[in-house]
Amino acid sequence: MTLIEKYVKAMQEKDYTALAELFAKDGTIMDHCPNGANQLEYHVYGKEAIGMFYRNKFTFGKHSISEAEILSESQAKFVASYNGFLVMAIANIRRTTEDGLIERLSVRPK
């Protein structure tokens, strides 16, 4: 299973632990989609922070994805829900470490 497939699986299953394990210690997620949802963009830095951030989002039903489609080994598209506001989004793994962890991932509106 590719990193992007693992990312999508963790997001769909709302598994914040599995999601965090995909990232390097200093990995980063930049999610630009909430901007249209009357929220600030998400810039989460560090494996532990990513786990905690998504734990809260998933636990309180503030974020989910559906209708995911893998586009390439580093890109997927899906419908993202931010507090019920739906956005068609594209996730891109921008950079990985030598040991195969995500160093930088971005999510943008499609």
Rank of each mutant, 00 (worst) to 15 (best):
M30S: 13
M30C: 10
M30N: 08
D31A: 11
D31S: 10
D31L: 12
D31V: 10
D31P: 13
H32E: 02
H32P: 00
C33W: 01
C33S: 11
C33L: 05
P34F: 04
N35M: 10
N35Y: 10
G36H: 05
G36A: 14
G36K: 07
A37Y: 04
A37R: 02
A37T: 10
N38Q: 04
N38A: 01
N38G: 02
N38K: 04
L40T: 07
E41A: 13
E41C: 13
Y42K: 00
Y42M: 10
H43K: 02
H43W: 03
H43E: 04
H43N: 08
V44W: 09
V44E: 10
V44R: 03
Y45T: 13
Y45P: 01
G46F: 01
G46Y: 00
E48G: 02
E48H: 06
A49G: 03
I50D: 01
I50G: 04
G51V: 11
G51E: 09
M52H: 08
F53Q: 05
F53A: 13
F53E: 04
Y54S: 00
R55I: 03
K57S: 09
K57G: 03
K57E: 14
F58V: 10
F58D: 03
T59G: 06
T59K: 13
T59Y: 05
F60Y: 15
F60P: 04
F60K: 07
F60T: 13
F60W: 13
K62Q: 14
K62E: 10
K62L: 14
H63P: 02
H63D: 07
H63W: 14
H63T: 06
S64H: 09
I65M: 04
I65W: 03
I65G: 02
E67Q: 14
E67D: 15
E67T: 05
A68C: 10
A68Q: 06
A68L: 08
A68I: 13
E69K: 15
L71F: 05
L71N: 07
L71H: 03
L71W: 04
L71T: 08
